[in-house]
């Protein structure tokens, strides 16, 4: 097992454990916004789309980069914007409280 793989595996397992704990107390009203927020976080796949552009060549390679980047950008931008719109509803209006 290479040093890199072992390091990656450690990060993966510890991140899984962290993920199991991090949202433990979420109230029912926040379930859908949280789902949407987590959906936006895996939009980090856009960084992966950038990374494959490093070695892409040929028409097929460029086409793959194009579709991957379009999918990932849609995930990340749409994900954060729609989550913010959901959470706007939780903002206390002026005059309340």
């Amino acid at each position: 097992m290479s040093v890199q793989l072992l390091a990656d595996l450690s990060v993966f397992v510890l991140s899984l454990l962290l993920g199991f704990e991090v949202i433990g107390r979420v109230p029912t009203t926040l379930h859908t916004p949280l789902m949407s927020a987590a959906n936006a976080v895996h939009g980090i796949v856009l960084a992966g789309a950038l990374a494959i552009a490093l070695t892409a060549e040929g028409v097929l390679g460029y086409a793959l980069v194009f579709v991957t980047a379009a999918f990932a950008a849609m995930n990340v931008v749409g994900g954060y914007v729609v989550t913010d719109r959901m959470l706007e509803m939780f903002r206390p209006r002026k005059g309340e409280r």
């Binding site: 991140s15 899984l16 962290l18 993920g19 199991f20 991090v22 949202i23 980090i44």
Partner: peptide, 21 residues
């Protein structure tokens, strides 16, 4: 596959918290 740590962290985080959710 890419050897990119931030993809691993963020992906695992969503994988686990999404399962709990």
């Amino acid at each position: 596959a890419l050897g990119n740590g931030v993809l691993i962290t963020a992906g695992a985080l969503v994988g686990a918290s999404g399962t709990i959710l």
